[in-house]
Amino acid sequence: MKLIDSIADLGRSAIEFVLGFGRAGLMLWGAIFRWPRVRKGFPLLVRQIYVVGVQSMVIILVSGLFIGMVLALQGYNILVGFGTEESLGPMVALSLLRELGPVVTALLFAGRAGSALTAEIGLMKSTEQLSSLEMMAIDPLRQIIAPRFWAGVISMPLLTLMFTAVGIYGGHIVGVEWKGIDSGAFWSILQASVEWRQDIVNCLIKSGVFAVVVTWIALYRGYQVIPNPEGISRATTQTVVQSSLAVLALDFLLTALMFGR
């Protein structure tokens, strides 16, 4: 009997899992494909880019600078042993462009903006603001979810670019200003090894994918919240945990696709 019960439980949670995907998919569908409106939607989008993007800028820039500097310091210590400390430039730039830029930005974004989105929408739901929109014959998916989704998708790649650029300058500060690598060698070797298609375009593709996933999870968690304080705090935690896991897993897949050959 125990065995049958646990099999039934397993089946039930599998169905719940698939159901969750279905609901999340429908939400996204409803948010981005139903009745696009440019004139009324634009001010909402600007406001959300402010909330999602501008307010995440400081943490992204500061983290980028420090990560670039740490990377350069550790890299220098290893490379100097081989006498190839000039390769510090490509090492910092490529690790930032290919991995750390998109991934760390996505993780920070999930913690800073994703959790805030979930909490905001959860609060709107529990104070019946979403219901009240519906009763006013305004689709909350269009009014609330869609501008936040697009704001996330626009902001995160930009944040990733800022993170990476600042990180490379962080590496420059440590490598050139502090450790005394020749500035010309640093930049020329760096430029010779970074490629437009392989590195920068792939960086943008990665961060675009992460942007969709993180924003989607955050919005879905908020939209499906159990409307009470405990539910909101649970949903916020779930947003951070699930989007971090999703980002890391997808990063492996994307890396395998892009660089695995």
């Binding site: 001010p43 600007v46 406001r47 880019i49 402010y50 993007g53 501008v54 800028m57 730039a93 462009l97 902001s155 790649p157 930009l158 944040l159 670019l161 800022m162 990476t164 650029a165 600042v166 490379i168 930049w187 760096l190 430029q191 010779a192 090894s193 970074v194 490629e195 437009w196 590195d199 920068i200």
Partner: peptide, 28 residues
């Protein structure tokens, strides 16, 4: 709203600047 629009503009331009730095200063 003006302040927000201004800051969003700054944000987008910073992103663009970072992109240009990466394209012209970092990539070959």
């Amino acid at each position: 709203t003006r302040k927000i629009e201004l800051l969003v503009g700054v944000f987008l331009l910073t992103g663009l600047a970072a992109f240009l730095v990466l394209v012209f200063n970092v990539a070959n």
